[in-house]
Write a protein that binds this DNA or RNA. Structure first.
Lengths: 129, 129
DNA sequence: TAATGTACCCATACATCATAGGGTACATTA
DNA sequence: TAATGTACCCTATGATGTATGGGTACATTA
């Protein structure tokens, strides 16, 4: 398990970590059940912050690509192969595109769309992230 | 027809202009067909920029609250009373709320939603505004 | 000539947010 | 005791978008 990080890349660090783990799962380098490095360990190896690796792990767990087992560590999810190809963001983008296209067709200003979006995001707050 | 502008209000100036004209229509102070001040005139009276008043007029015309007749000036739309109560933004907000609620329920991060939103807004560009 | 709405260029001040980091602390369990 | 994931505090930087302004110009028509 080796991860290469490019600090100068425009791609966010946590995204680079996510993509490389997913890619390792897809290529078979990481089989279901395989242990992953501890958060602090991987962050130290890559020379980046704990929180950055933790963020990548958190997102990967949400996507059911990895599993965290508390003090025992983190492992590849049993269904990782299927789940690391499905992209939640594609669905989000598709849905938003449908709505925004309709708004623009009704001559709603981009500014107005952005204002309304910001309103919705801020009034119904969510805690983390 | 008098419009009061509060520079220190957080509400944008063009919004204040829009709201007061709509309110004057609703209260009957401005009847259908009544002429509105010229853009440069009103801007001068209020001590604000031409573009700010022009923006308010542009949006009001889109909402069919006013009508511009080229060199002849701007007038209250025949159906202004009905149209100044219907708010396009309510529809936009409702639609976005539905989508965003679904995203959050699927554990999509607010950051991810914002990124996807910005992508959609920027890839399919529109010209003005 | 003068006034109308409209369009384009430029710029600035301000707010919001994503990313990333530094630090500390917690409960759990070998 | 040591390591696990996790949660919270605070900070800084860069990107982006809004609102507003200044200026110039256009075709149209009284």
């Amino acid at each position: 398990m080796e991860i290469q990080i490019d600090i100068d890349d425009k791609v966010p660090l946590f995204t680079q970590v996510m993509e490389q783990i997913k890619q390792a799962v897809s290529s078979g380098d990481l089989a279901a059940g395989s242990p992953l490095p501890a958060i602090r360990q991987l962050a130290s190896d890559l020379g980046i912050n704990n929180k950055t690796v933790a963020k990548a792990y958190r997102l990967l767990e949400r996507d059911n690509v990895i599993q965290t087992k508390g003090y025992r560590g983190t492992f590849i999810h049993p269904d990782a192969i299927e789940n690391c190809t499905t992209d939640l963001n594609i669905w989000v983008t598709t849905e938003l595109t449908k709505s925004i296209t309709a708004f623009r067709h009704a001559n709603v200003t981009d500014s107005e769309i952005r204002i309304a979006f910001a309103d919705v995001m801020n009034t119904n707050e969510t805690k983390g992230n």
